[in-house]
């Protein structure tokens, strides 16, 4: 199949493509599934991170 005789290499070739397809499906299915909120703690963390960056 596809000019590759070794089933394990063929599996890797198709497996890599399958992994990407799984990623696409996952992203589409979960697109809005998780909550999207920024907590005060998240913002505090980002401010601290930004301060380090700015210093740098």
């Amino acid at each position: 199949m596809l000019g590759i005789d070794d089933p394990y290499v063929l599996m890797a070739y198709l497996g890599a493509i399958s992994m990407a397809v799984i990623g696409i499906i996952y992203g589409l299915v979960r697109r809005n599934a998780a909550r999207d909120e920024v907590t005060p703690e998240d913002r505090l963390w980002a401010l601290d991170e930004k301060k380090v960056d700015d210093d740098f």
């Binding site: 890599a16 493509i17 992994m19 990407a20 799984i22 990623g23 696409i24 996952y26 992203g27 589409l28 979960r30 697109r31 809005n32 599934a33 998780a34 909550r35 999207d36 909120e37 920024v38 998240d42 963390w45 980002a46 991170e49």
Partner: peptide, 22 residues
């Protein structure tokens, strides 16, 4: 991962990341 805004942002990045790495 720590600089990501939320779980949703992570989920949405999966398809692009997977195709990019492929």
């Amino acid at each position: 991962f720590m600089t990501v805004r939320s779980r949703r942002e992570l989920d949405r990045a999966v398809p692009i990341g997977a195709v990019f790495i492929l």
